[in-house]
Design a binder for these strands. Structure first.
Lengths: 230, 230
DNA sequence: ACCTCGCAAATTTGATCATATTATCTGGAA
DNA sequence: TTCCAGATAATATGATCAAATTTGCGAGGT
């Protein structure tokens, strides 16, 4: 039931998912230009579906439409980081609280598995897998809230933060990446809504403060490498 | 310089703006199907730019992609209204607070003009102009916050609420539509951040509670009329 | 005799592609 | 430095294919 029928869906959806994953995994560096024809070459297919995928991501803030007709991966500024922290702190704990109302044993065990994979990725220094697992942990929890409004908004915030997160992990390694996942799971087991929300809030604060500190540190250094996508 | 050069921009941007305005003005009823070819006919041009505009709006929640490949204007449920209220209450007052830091006399006079137009629209029972002015009032204020993160998120919430708002105004008229715009302007004049945020919060609460009450009232009645777009 | 249900043809609509057009960027020469 | 030409990539269109809905017809039941 959870399989990935990749062949019976419109191409623009598959391309959207692929591009999305690339962004979430940090495969695209901040500032890197994204070309329609380049992606069409890589992912196979014509320009029209790629166009649609890029428009969607652009509307979500995952890509930036420069005044001319170029598209690139956005580079976060310090005020934007602060806004992201505020917005995430405002919405995600509530989403977690709503989710904890619908918690099931299978959800908890799923979260445990994801967190185990996350810790393993940290041990191995596998940044990509770490980012994937971290995203998956939060989204698996939030999905249980069955929210059609808050979840897309929060998703947009994650898409915006991911490229910068990747840069930071790549620069400083995965050693100093504490999280509040165990606290979250414990609170879920105790069916303590408020505690779940608190744990998530702390997790967010920790992560965003981390980004902020590193951005402050690296500000004014050399421009980020704009490795070609092709 | 501030004119509307409608001819020197890509077509998909113009179509996006047009569709967006139709949604914000309530020209599209909740549940109404939106066809690519139909829009291409109406707005002139080919299907590809329309496609892109629809993808963008879909990602913002302004349109709903049904499992098949049809797109329609979303119908809000009660839990979704509650989520929208929560999300707006969480973000918009902060946006207003940030904006009030950058307030200028010309901004205040602009807001006064908009509010005058709004009151005039209420008097005349001009629902469309009322919706436009109300949106413009909030967005003109929020834009002063110079926020790239919060503003798009909030914009998405407005796009989601507008179709339902229109239905309610159309059903119950524009008489009983109180707002806190005067209080907001007064607080801006006094450069009282907290008061601005409070006024906006009250404005939102009032509006969303209104929608909620009407939705509760009309629930279970006949399905909303799906008037043709052409 | 009339109504309802279901299946199949027909029409509408969406998806993808190849291509022509246009705008932007790049390099070099005046 | 400024300007012009070539290159590169985005935009937009129409055609073609595929999928879904709607329409219409006939059989079976009331």
């Amino acid at each position: 039931m959870t399989g990935s029928e990749t062949e019976k869906r419109p191409a623009h959806l598959n391309i959207y998912d692929a591009l999305r994953n690339m962004i979430l995994c940090g495969d695209l560096a901040p500032g890197q230009p994204v070309t329609i024809q380049g992606l069409a070459e890589i992912l196979g297919g014509s320009t029209t579906p790629v166009r649609e995928a890029i428009r969607r991501l652009t509307s979500q803030g995952a890509l930036h439409f420069q005044g001319n007709r170029r598209v690139s991966v956005p580079v976060l500024t310090l005020p934007q980081i602060d806004e992201l922290k505020f917005a995430r702190m405002a919405l995600e704990p509530e989403l977690a609280r709503m989710a904890s109302k619908n918690v099931t044993p299978s959800l908890i065990s799923e979260l445990c598995d994801i967190d185990a994979a996350l810790d393993s990725a940290i041990e191995r220094g596998d940044v990509k897998r770490y980012l994937q697992s971290n995203y998956l942990f939060h989204m698996t929890l939030y999905r249980a809230a069955q929210s059609d409004i808050l979840l897309p908004a929060v998703d947009s915030f994650w898409l915006r933060s991911s490229p910068s997160l990747r840069v930071i992990c790549g620069r400083y390694g995965t050693q100093h990446l504490p999280d509040k996942h165990q606290e979250t799971i414990a609170a879920l087991r105790a069916t303590d809504d408020a505690a779940v929300a608190r744990a998530i809030a702390q997790d967010i604060a920790q992560g965003m403060d981390n980004i902020r500190a590193v951005l402050l540190d690296t500000q004014g250094k050399t421009a980020p490498e704009t490795s070609k996508v092709s």
